[in-house]
């Protein structure tokens, strides 16, 4: 019996599923925001691949980098990175909000309130961002 339960998964098509329209995530603002949050990963993934492409050329030498650096000054790439930045910030804020639900730290008998968990994450985020910025500004 136990073996059957593990090995034979229930047939998905025979289970009850509410009928939802294809564009169900347009119905409610919260559904739309959920899908938008998932979409942030596409922009982040594209940025990471582009960044990796740049890093590859940097490791090949300064000349190799300057050869490809020019194309990222085009309006299209600037617009893409502008949108990607907005999406990435949205990902960060939604991630910290989720972290406050999952992480419930206790100090002695006192439970740290969720708003404080979010605030601590934002503080760490700003500190990490400032540290990376310093590398560009000071060095």
């Amino acid at each position: 019996m136990e073996k059957e339960m593990i090995v034979n998964r229930p047939d998905n098509s025979k289970m009850y599923h509410p009928h939802m329209p294809t564009a169900w995530w347009f119905r409610k603002w919260s559904y739309f925001l959920f899908m938008l949050r998932e979409l942030t990963s596409v922009f982040i993934a594209v940025f990471l691949v582009v960044y990796l492409f740049q890093i590859y050329h940097i490791t090949q030498g300064a000349d190799a980098y300057w050869e490809i650096a020019g194309q990222f000054r085009s309006g299209g790439w600037i617009a893409f990175h502008g949108v990607a930045l907005i999406f990435a910030i949205y990902h960060s804020l939604s991630w910290f909000k989720t972290a406050a639900v999952i992480l419930t730290p206790r100090v002695g008998g006192w439970m740290v309130p969720p708003w404080m968990v979010v605030a601590l994450h934002i503080a760490a985020w700003l500190a990490a961002s400032a540290a990376v910025l310093m590398l560009y500004v000071l060095i």
Partner: peptide, 14 residues
């Protein structure tokens, strides 16, 4: 990604 990607986009992308 939440902690570090935005600053990298802002710097290398913009």
């Amino acid at each position: 990604a939440a902690m570090l990607v935005p600053i990298h986009i802002a710097l290398t992308g913009l």
